[in-house]
Design a protein around this nucleic acid. Sequence first.
DNA 1: CTCGAAATGAGAACGAGTCTCAACCGCGGG
DNA 2: CCCGCGGTTGAGACTCGTTCTCATTTCGAG
Lengths: 160, 160
Amino acid sequence: MKDVAKHFELFLRQRSLRLTRQREAILKAIYGTHRHVTAEELYELLQKAGDAKALRISRATVYRTLSLLAEGGFVQALELGRDRGTLYEHTLGHEHHDHMVCMACGKIIEFHDDELEQVQAAAIRRHGFEATSHRLNVFGTCAKCQEKGKGSAAGEAQAG
Amino acid sequence: MKDVAKHFELFLRQRSLRLTRQREAILKAIYGTHRHVTAEELYELLQKAGDAKALRISRATVYRTLSLLAEGGFVQALELGRDRGTLYEHTLGHEHHDHMVCMACGKIIEFHDDELEQVQAAAIRRHGFEATSHRLNVFGTCAKCQEKGKGSAAGEAQAG
DNA sequence: CTCGAAATGAGAACGAGTCTCAACCGCGGG
DNA sequence: CCCGCGGTTGAGACTCGTTCTCATTTCGAG
Ligand SMILES: [Mn+2]
Ligand SMILES: [Mn+2]
Ligand SMILES: [Zn+2]
Ligand SMILES: [Zn+2]
């Protein structure tokens, strides 16, 4: 986190942007949680945290800073459906991962598979495409929720 | 297309829903294009097509029917970023595929790779998750646009 | 044909995200 | 340590895709 702040400061300097209390607070906030948060959640979080230090941060600034952080690679946006809104997570200190979303309990599970990444990269290259990023979102039922749903009809399966 | 209409009719009957001229027209419209279309594009398309038969279809009905068609598996929604809006494509007669989006020209390229699907399925299963669907979106530069950008600095690369 | 339920149209409402612009404040220079 | 030039912020208006409301229309079983 300390070095993240340093990186951010450098990033800002390189682009002749300023290190403001707001930007610091937002960076700190998103690096202070391991959840996937919406801009609104972050905003509310910052309201409370800021009440103490008398630092008000507007929604606009949260959105603006989140975009800035995304450009700099400090955070990443996740879009899991028009409804859930855009989710953000910090990236430094976390290797790339994909997401599985449980439709029953809403839990978001992160996973990473090297072989998958390699096969994927190969397939993409084979099509003459040059990838800069990708998102794999899997929807279904998590292990826990599979248990709960054992009282009904036996084994189903679907693909979509 | 004829059998798709039959399937749709059956689907509606099973759920005691009605086959209306609007629903027919919308089904026909989305099965009549091979592009990925937004609800709005479809709406405008239907306006023109409907002028002849004096069949007006409201935006609300387009949205409602698209959701219905998605539930029934007749169409699929694609969400490639908060900006582009939700895109729809018909599914019957098309096997599952993933998408690569060219950030330079906006083109959407479909691709399918069996090995990828299998490795993916295995990785997901290994995590105790039961998948019902997934979306893999790859962002980058298409082959054509890679050509165009050959006058500048030599080979770059990035990963995000 | 009749009738009740489902479906539709028009436009209001909603909400995430963006824009506007006057007031504010980082920060390099003196 | 103070100044002043922009970059930055806050509040709220605004955008625009999507959903909701409800009076009216239409499907389709009997
Ligand atoms: Mn994550
Ligand atoms: Mn497609
Ligand atoms: Zn679950
Ligand atoms: Zn291209």
